[in-house]
Amino acid sequence: MLTPQPIVGVSESPFTGDAQVYVHQGQLWQAEVELPPIVGTARAGPWKAFLTKLNGRAGTFLMGDPDARVPRGSAANEPGLPQVQGDGQLGSDLLIDGLPASVSGYLLAGDYVQLGSGPDARLHLVQDDVDSDPAGQATLSLWPRVRRSPPDNDTVVVAQTQGVFRMTSNATGWESNEAMVYGFSFTARSVP
């Protein structure tokens, strides 16, 4: 399960109820992962190795939303290679190009995109439907906001999207019973 974790401070007066709200730059994904039961040490072994290789919070790994591997918008079937349009873009809006011209619903609110790859991969949720203009350009409204500016013409991944995550605890483990049925669960947070 992926949960958005905005970092917002609120100071509320106990006398008047008036509140001051401060929206900090941080916006992270919190992931709670529980694998289905795994039978046998042969199948559980790779998961044991994966968790111990992370060495608690030291290592990172790539993960996406397993329920949203393919976009619901027409990007799943349309040709085109979306790319970042211009250097220096930070914040919630990202200009892109390389889309098919004049397409309505290329991406839909709730689809994901990935910026960067490997250890620089960041997972973003599209907040508004994306329509391309006659030049094949569009603006993505993203959560979390872009904190590392992607280079001009960098590919915007629209399917099989992932981001870099880190465990929330150094303690990782698993359970097993006498029938050698293993249970694995852990929590992780996206790397900003």
Score class of each variant (00 low, 15 high):
residue 1 M to G: 14
residue 2 L to A: 09
residue 2 L to P: 13
residue 2 L to C: 11
residue 3 T to C: 08
residue 3 T to G: 05
residue 5 Q to A: 07
residue 5 Q to W: 05
residue 6 P to R: 02
residue 6 P to L: 01
residue 8 V to W: 01
residue 9 G to V: 00
residue 9 G to E: 12
residue 9 G to Y: 08
residue 10 V to Q: 12
residue 10 V to N: 10
residue 10 V to I: 02
residue 10 V to E: 09
residue 11 S to H: 06
residue 12 E to N: 09
residue 13 S to T: 01
residue 15 F to L: 15
residue 15 F to D: 15
residue 16 T to M: 04
residue 17 G to R: 05
residue 17 G to A: 03
residue 18 D to Q: 09
residue 18 D to W: 01
residue 20 Q to H: 05
residue 20 Q to D: 02
residue 20 Q to N: 07
residue 20 Q to Y: 00
residue 21 V to W: 07
residue 21 V to E: 08
residue 21 V to G: 02
residue 21 V to M: 11
residue 22 Y to C: 14
residue 23 V to A: 08
residue 23 V to C: 07
residue 24 H to G: 07
residue 24 H to N: 11
residue 25 Q to F: 12
residue 27 Q to S: 11
residue 27 Q to R: 10
residue 27 Q to L: 11
residue 29 W to A: 00
residue 29 W to T: 00
residue 31 A to C: 10
residue 31 A to I: 03
residue 32 E to M: 14
residue 33 V to H: 04
residue 34 E to Y: 09
residue 34 E to I: 09
residue 34 E to T: 12
residue 35 L to K: 13
residue 35 L to Q: 15
residue 36 P to K: 06
residue 36 P to H: 05
residue 36 P to L: 08
residue 36 P to Y: 02
residue 37 P to H: 08
residue 37 P to T: 02
residue 37 P to M: 04
residue 38 I to H: 01
residue 38 I to Y: 01
residue 39 V to E: 14
residue 40 G to E: 03
residue 40 G to W: 01
residue 40 G to H: 02
residue 41 T to D: 15
residue 41 T to L: 15
residue 42 A to H: 11
residue 42 A to Y: 07
